[in-house]
């Protein structure tokens, strides 16, 4: 068992009075590829917002290592936040900056590198995600898949300990999605980065996931946590099996009932 990197303890999430999920407890280990899965609208992106400091929990705690993330004062929270990188569902590149400037922004703010060193670093990060030579393009001038990859390059700019992805393969063709998965895996292997991925792509879930949590929109809580392959093999909750097999069941095909 790896050591815990992020611990979520009885977390309840709500927008105003509208509870999205309640009583989530799970642990994300160091170096794991952790999958947050569940049907669309069940609160996966919301969970991410709670983990990266954009939305305060209605109840419950989030710990980074031993540090209570939401109890800490703003300054300490920002310190934690500098150790994480986030790839947003939409890419969220700064549309008024070129790709190079996007990636250079955190480097310029938080490192002592000089201009030339930053430029080298930017080129290296862009090359890592297969965008060498696109330094001077604006986000609007490249395709959606390329924006995703540029967003990844920016998320990795400061070599974060934890990378968060919100539906990285949404809107990508299967080959690009696969390449992105491979990229995520190799990052995890070579840099030892902990990775948290929100996705409902079964192919990705089984290809890269080493641990997971399953959110259910109906009961508004988590149904299970653990390795997705194990969940598929061992779980006896029909909702999980249905999700992980695209509704076909474990071998015995269920008939639709009216």
């Amino acid at each position: 068992m790896t050591t815990a990197h992020i611990t979520v303890d009885h977390l309840t999430m709500a927008y105003g009075d509208f509870v999205i999920q309640r009583d989530l407890s799970f642990t994300i280990g160091r170096g794991e590829v952790f999958i947050v899965m569940g049907g669309s609208g069940c609160g996966k992106s919301t969970l991410l917002k709670h983990l990266i400091g954009l939305h305060r929990p209605a109840k419950g705690q989030v710990y980074y290592d031993k540090q209570n993330f939401w109890r800490a004062d703003a300054e300490q929270r920002i310190k934690v936040m500098r150790r994480i990188g986030v790839l947003y569902q939409s890419g969220a590149l700064f549309s008024s900056l070129t790709l190079a400037e996007n990636i250079a922004l955190p480097l310029g703010e938080f490192t002592g590198l000089n201009k030339a060193e930053i430029a080298d670093m930017v080129s290296y990060k862009l090359a890592l995600v297969g965008l060498a030579g696109f330094e001077d393009y604006y986000p609007a001038e490249i395709s959606g898949g390329m924006q995703k990859r540029a967003g990844l390059a920016r998320a990795m700019a400061l070599d974060p300990e934890i990378l968060f992805f919100d539906e990285p393969s949404a809107g990508l063709d299967p080959v690009s999605a696969r390449l992105l998965d491979d990229l995520i895996l190799s990052l995890c292997d070579t840099l030892g980065t902990t990775i948290v991925v929100v996705t409902h792509e079964l192919a990705s879930i089984f290809a890269i996931g080493t641990n997971s949590v399953f959110l259910d929109p109906e009961s508004k809580t988590m149904l299970a946590t653990g390795n997705p392959k194990k969940l598929l093999a061992e779980s006896d909750d029909p909702r999980i099996i249905q999700f992980l097999t695209r509704g076909e069941g474990r071998g015995d095909k269920q008939k639709g009932v009216l």
């Binding site: 400091g53 920002i78 936040m81 969220a92 590149l93 700064f94 955190p106 703010e109 920016r154």
Partner: peptide
């Protein structure tokens, strides 16, 4: 407003800026 729609402001916050 457009930056907000595009999560750019969220991105700044999580960068610690």
């Amino acid at each position: 407003g457009t930056m907000n729609v595009n999560s750019e402001i969220d991105a700044l916050k999580t960068m610690g800026i």
